[in-house]
Design a protein around this nucleic acid. Structure first.
Lengths: 118, 118
DNA sequence: CAGGCATATATCCACGAGGGAATATAGGCA
DNA sequence: TGCCTATATTCCCTCGTGGATATATGCCTG
């Protein structure tokens, strides 16, 4: 988990992540938009890749980097422990969702199942 | 936002945060439980404090550090942009909660108000 | 194959941050 | 007042990391 924070604890890398949420980009795309040199961009992308935050798709001489939701989902799961500190809505969510699942299991089996992972 | 990641991108500080979610602690409490020296603990707590992640309550010669939900809530808000990447449940949550609020505003004004801050 | 473009890697430098130890500050208590 | 305890701060050292530059790799096209 802390490797995740490490990767995001750098302004340029954070910007890269925020850029990639919109659309996959090539290295030069990113470098141009953030006014970085290509070499720095590659280095930052390497860190992000090793942290599992982005993935690469090779397309000819280009490489298309895109955001990897999996690790961000881990961050989200990590936050679960803390949500109750500021918001009791989530306990309510749990109850409500439990109700919904209950109802749907009875009435509406065509809508897709909402599973809670533990 | 990136100062937040900075503060959490250090194993000991991350552990301190995870420790404080359970209960407020004094400096020596934390130092003992995480096997740190008091001076390092103070230093880390200072970083966390300046990042707004913890707050101090002076209690005699002790100081009781507790977690400050506000910044973690900001992290949660930051994640909102990314949730759709892995999970469409949250849009549904919003709709459901909107419904609930609507109903409660009409029927059940004794239950405490659930406000959405923007 | 040669040359050009996209990307990655290596090397050097400078700076910031964490650990250790000593010290400072400050409250509690005899 | 003087000592003890809790906490904060300072100085020094070391190491990791980001930036810059140069170079390597690899693909595409003529």
């Amino acid at each position: 988990m802390f490797e995740l924070f490490m990767a995001l604890a750098e302004p340029n890398r954070l910007q890269i992540v925020e850029l990639l949420v919109n659309e996959p980009c090539t290295v030069l795309d990113i470098a141009d938009r953030l006014s970085l040199r290509q070499t720095q961009t590659s280095k930052h992308l390497r860190v992000l890749r090793e942290a599992g935050l982005v993935s690469v798709e090779v397309a000819g001489q280009h490489r298309r980097y895109s955001l990897e939701p999996k690790r961000l989902k881990e961050l989200d799961n990590w936050l679960v422990k803390y949500r109750r500190l500021w918001d009791d809505r989530f306990e309510q969510f749990d109850r409500v969702i439990a109700d919904i699942n209950h109802q749907e299991n009875q009435n509406d089996s065509k809508s897709k199942q909402r599973k809670r992972e533990k």
